[in-house]
């Protein structure tokens, strides 16, 4: 079992940032990195560790985001209860998606696209149901307070995100270092062989998706607390699913630090391309896309994979 010291060190080092910088931009950027890193970590638990690529993490993110918003707005509950419920609701959603897909042995691209379909179904339902406010969406009243998990200061949100990110790292490290991690790796590398060795592939994949969905739901709830407004596109749109997988793949799948590294690289890249391309509309995203392709070209195992042996080459998302 590897020690958890690096994670503790990370949290400790990241803790004082709000005192060190007076810049709202820096703090906001750091908060976004932590938020996306956690969402990426959620994806990584399933996509990286278990090798089950999901294109539909928006389903879990959105479920968490809506759950807390609905509880606070419709039932008047406090944000803490909302947050806990959000995680549970996302877990339930994960269990549902996982059960349906793993029970019927969907793998590779089939699994990826079925998760996408679940997210789309969720988006369309959120667009039609009364409880989600349909297309009008849900707006939480602006009312700072610890019981409502709303902060007047940006630092509050930063620390909130830091807690989530650290929790994600701890979960990932814990899974990696226990038997579950080994079993997931076995399933990822060769599911038939793993089964032959007595691994209950269905059970371990279910565990992975439930952890993954719960963490993604927590990020969704965080998003709700930060921006206070949700609509079906924001919560369940395909761009959420893409953001969930982009970070870990750029950073390095399967590694617990990959999602954080990937999120940081992508956010900084976004800032840099904006700063450098100036006023031509869209030029920043053109540059971003080009650099993305170059990263793949020069860091085939993700940024974190430099110097790591290429063990996973034969693995396929096509099943």
């Amino acid at each position: 079992m590897r020690p958890l010291a690096p994670i503790g060190l990370f949290a400790l080092l990241a803790l004082p940032l709000p005192w060190l910088t007076g810049s709202g931009t820096v703090l906001n950027l750091a908060t976004m990195v932590l938020m996306l890193a956690t969402l990426g970590q959620a994806w990584n638990l399933l996509g990286g560790m278990a090798g089950q690529f999901s294109f539909g993490h928006a389903a879990f993110f959105g479920t968490g985001a809506y759950a807390t918003a609905i509880l606070q707005i419709r039932l008047g509950l406090d944000a803490w209860t909302g947050f806990a419920t959000a995680v549970l609701a996302a877990v339930a959603m994960g269990a549902l998606v996982g059960f349906a897909s793993f029970r019927f042995r969907l793998r590779g691209s089939y699994f990826a696209l079925v998760t996408l379909a679940f997210a789309e179904v969720a988006r369309i339902l959120a667009n039609s149901l009364e409880i989600t406010g349909a297309g009008v969406g849900l707006l939480l009243p602006l009312a700072p307070g610890l019981d409502r998990l709303q902060f007047t200061d940006k630092a509050g949100y930063y620390w909130f995100a830091l807690v989530l990110c650290t929790a994600g790292l701890l979960i990932a490290a814990r899974i990696r270092d226990t038997r579950l991690g080994a079993r997931l790796a076995a399933v990822r590398e060769n599911e038939e062989a793993a089964r032959a060795l007595g691994v209950d592939a269905f059970a371990v994949k279910m565990q992975a998706i439930v952890w993954s969905a719960g963490l993604a739901g927590a990020v969704g709830a965080f998003y709700t607390q930060l921006f206070l407004y949700l609509d079906p596109h924001i919560a369940f749109g395909p761009q959420v699913s893409v953001e969930a997988l982009l970070g870990p793949i750029v950073g390095g799948t399967g590694s617990i630090w990959g999602p954080l590294l990937g999120a940081a690289v992508l956010q900084l890249l976004g800032e840099a391309t904006r700063a450098l391309t100036g006023g031509v509309t869209g030029a920043n995203l053109v540059a971003y896309g080009i650099v993305l392709v170059l990263i793949v070209r020069f860091f085939p195992d993700g940024m974190i994979g430099l110097g790591r042996p290429r063990a996973l080459d034969a693995r396929g998302v096509s099943g």
């Binding site: 810049s23 931009t25 976004m32 930060l226 509309t281 920043n284």
Partner: peptide, 21 residues
């Protein structure tokens, strides 16, 4: 001082931070 929200609320909010500074 031009800002692009990229059709996303969170990007819009981030642009406000930059504009503030």
């Amino acid at each position: 001082v031009l800002g692009d929200a990229q059709s996303k609320p969170e990007v819009g909010a981030a642009e406000v931070e930059k504009m503030n500074e």
